[in-house]
């Protein structure tokens, strides 16, 4: 049993509920004991760092101060939260004046995808009984913050990452090569400049289809929301198309035959169940 602190963040308690459910489900199957951070609050997200530097540091650090009480690493599935935590932890060293109380804790922060791609977790996964995702072609979509900026993420192949691809291949899926792995979907602009997000998302969706993928896999709540919900009017070579978008934890759960997979997938806007039934995977 491995004990970690779990920071869900606001989205995982709302629109990204299936990410929370599948993350918890997969963690349990892999013997990871999640301790949800008590009394956690919002990291401030895009709005804080676009508004005020001190606010963008103080909001995540409030949570880090609580997490520092425990000798555990903190795993964060929402990559937008993760990025804010990593940035704030760095900034807090240089700008203690931004904080109400000093932050001295050295809480080790892990993004859920990186956590599951780590060697010990991969070994644990290999030791489990896996029903291979045979015949499923996936386009691994990392988005921005899972890889950039590399000085925060520590990802070496930040222009052409492959760690999610390798994880998917371990589950028996085929990861297709494509060139939009780290292109931006427009993220939070969806609320204000929906036109930009629809345009960017449909470029990404179209490229995945052209690359021969049956589905897209991501580990970002904003990417998932944008790609899953902005498919109306999507055409590839003049033909109307759609493509399901999974959280990587959902496909891990599917391969490990978690009992709740159907419930997670039932929350998607673009139906993923038909694809999996056709492939004989569900």
């Amino acid at each position: 049993m491995k004990d970690v602190t779990y920071y869900p963040g606001c989205s995982l308690h709302g629109t990204a509920r299936e990410y929370d459910e599948s993350f918890r489900g997969v963690s349990e199957l892999l013997g990871v004991n999640l301790h949800e951070l008590e009394d956690w609050t919002c990291c401030g997200s895009t709005s804080a760092h676009c508004t005020d530097e001190a606010l963008a540091v103080a909001l995540p650090v409030r949570n880090l101060t609580i997490a520092a009480k425990y000798d555990r690493e903190m795993v964060i599935p929402c990559v937008a939260c993760y990025s804010r935590f990593k940035a704030a932890a760095e900034e807090a060293k240089e700008h203690p004046e931004y904080l109400l109380s000093p932050y001295e804790g050295k809480v080790s922060l892990r993004y859920a995808l990186d956590f599951f791609c780590d060697k010990p977790m991969i070994e644990d996964l290999k030791s489990k009984k896996i029903k291979p995702l045979s015949g499923l072609k996936v386009a691994c979509y990392y988005g921005c913050l899972a890889v950039r900026p590399p000085k925060l993420t520590g990802v070496k192949l930040y222009e052409n990452p492959d760690h999610m691809d390798r994880l998917m291949e371990l589950l028996g899926a085929e990861a297709v090569d494509w060139s939009y792995k780290t292109d931006c979907c427009g993220a939070s602009l969806v609320m204000t400049r929906t036109d930009i997000v629809t345009n960017l998302s449909q470029k990404i969706l179209g490229m995945a289809i052209e690359a021969g993928a049956d589905c897209i896999v991501t580990g970002c709540t904003m990417c998932h929301a944008n790609l899953d919900t902005r498919q109306a009017g999507l055409t590839v070579e003049g033909e109307k198309r759609e493509i399901p978008v999974f959280y990587f934890t959902e496909l891990m759960g599917l391969a490990m035959e978690h009992k709740d997979v159907k419930q997670w997938l039932g929350r998607h806007i673009t139906d993923p169940i038909k694809l999996l039934s056709n492939k004989g995977l569900l």
Binding site: C10, S11, H13, G14, T15, W40, T41, C42, G44, S45, T46, S47, A48, C50, T51, L55, L59, S188, M191, T192
Partner: peptide, 18 residues
């Protein structure tokens, strides 16, 4: 405006209630 509403929400409820 969106950012300011977002921050008001954090101030009011600590977490974002979408």
């Amino acid at each position: 405006i969106f950012h300011s509403v977002f921050l008001d929400s954090i101030k009011a409820t600590g977490r974002i209630h979408e």
